[in-house]
Amino acid sequence: MDLFFDNAPTLWSGFRVTLQLTAVSGLLALALGLALAALRVAPLRPLRAVSMLYVELMRNTPLTLVFFGMVLVAPQFGIIPPLGFWTAVLCLTLYTSAFVSEALRSGINSVGVGQAEAARAIGLTFGQSLRLVILPQAVRTVIPPLINVIIALAKNTSVAAGFAVVELVATGRRLGQAIPGEAVTILGGIALLYLVFTIPAGLLATRLEKKVAFAR
């Protein structure tokens, strides 16, 4: 365990990258996911189809493949993604937005269809109906699943390790290689650092879920 504490500063900086990746990708994924969810319930069929295609594609692709695609395949088509941190943000955002969209969509569907019809019937546009009537009512049911999406995102930042972004797992691996025999201790420490973040988030999600259940 000493070893873990001796290397705490290195691990801490890895932890910080994890948090930064989670925060930046999380915010961007919320924005993109919201746009995807809006398209998914739009009154025009082609818009719905585009959103559905994107979401299904991303949901059923392993995250590592998204990274591989971005780092190895995209350049062959002349798309040169920025390297390091922002590549990771891009991949994590594209991937996570699909799950955000699904969480939002289930929230939107939990609001009765009559609410949307009444909104349209008084002359609100599609965007206004969504913003003024549907989303405010969807929020309550949507927050717990969204927190779970963000927890998954925090764990998924470890995939960035393989792609030159120095976050927690990558740091641990380098330390493990530098100091063989102590890999288990170090991995254990890393798991702990993750849990420091994910367990409170999980508890928050559960509590909110209960609160929502009461409010109904």
Binding site: G114, A121, I122, G123
Partner: peptide, 16 residues
Amino acid sequence: RSDVGMVFQSFNLFAH
């Protein structure tokens, strides 16, 4: 639509 009022069987008042 804003010129056409509609009243539904299930009221559909904005619940929030």
